[in-house]
Computed example of a mutant assay.
Amino acid sequence: MKLTSIIAIYLLFWVMSAFVLLPFGVKTPDEAGIAKVPGQAESAPVNFRPGRVALRATLLSAVLTGLYIANYIQGWITVDDINFFGTPPGYGES
């Protein structure tokens, strides 16, 4: 596997991880006991920390990329393992 492929896979995992981790640890004004600003949305976060989300996404995506590369090298899960419906009729015929 080329280095550029590894970087691309890492970046895809990073973006996906960042979006998955966004709602964790965030509190609304009602949960934090803070008065709302007029016009503020009910669900607006009070303690949003983008640096913490980025750090957690970096760590999670590094682990996921490592597992992906290990699977690529070792072949633990292949296409045949996740092909639940079998070979489609007429596939591979010329």
Rank of each mutant, 00 (worst) to 15 (best):
M1G: 08
M1E: 06
K2Y: 07
K2C: 03
K2W: 00
L3R: 06
I6D: 11
Y10H: 14
Y10G: 01
F13L: 13
F13R: 02
W14V: 00
W14P: 01
W14S: 04
W14D: 02
V15S: 09
V15W: 12
M16P: 00
A18Y: 15
A18W: 13
F19A: 04
F19W: 14
V20K: 00
V20P: 00
L21G: 02
L21F: 13
L21R: 01
F24V: 06
G25C: 11
G25N: 13
V26K: 09
V26T: 06
T28M: 04
P29M: 02
P29H: 15
P29C: 14
D30S: 13
D30N: 09
E31W: 01
E31L: 08
A32W: 00
G33I: 05
G33K: 11
A35M: 10
A35Q: 14
K36E: 13
K36Y: 03
K36A: 15
V37L: 09
G39Y: 04
G39R: 08
A41C: 06
E42K: 05
E42S: 09
S43E: 15
V46R: 03
N47Q: 04
N47T: 06
N47G: 10
N47M: 04
F48I: 08
V53Y: 02
A54W: 06
L55I: 11
L55R: 10
R56H: 13
R56P: 01
A57V: 04
T58A: 14
L59K: 12
L59V: 13
L60M: 14
L60H: 03
L60F: 09
S61D: 09
S61Q: 07
A62I: 12
V63A: 15
L64V: 12
T65C: 12
T65V: 03
Y68C: 11
Y68E: 05
I69L: 15
I69K: 11
A70V: 11
N71K: 01
N71L: 08
I73V: 14
Q74W: 04
Q74D: 11
G75L: 12
G75N: 12
G75A: 10
W76K: 14
W76A: 15
V79M: 07
D80L: 08
I82H: 02
N83F: 03
N83W: 05
F84W: 15
F84S: 05
T87W: 01
T87E: 13
P89G: 11
G90P: 12
G90K: 03
Y91V: 05
G92W: 11
E93G: 02
E93C: 04
S94P: 10
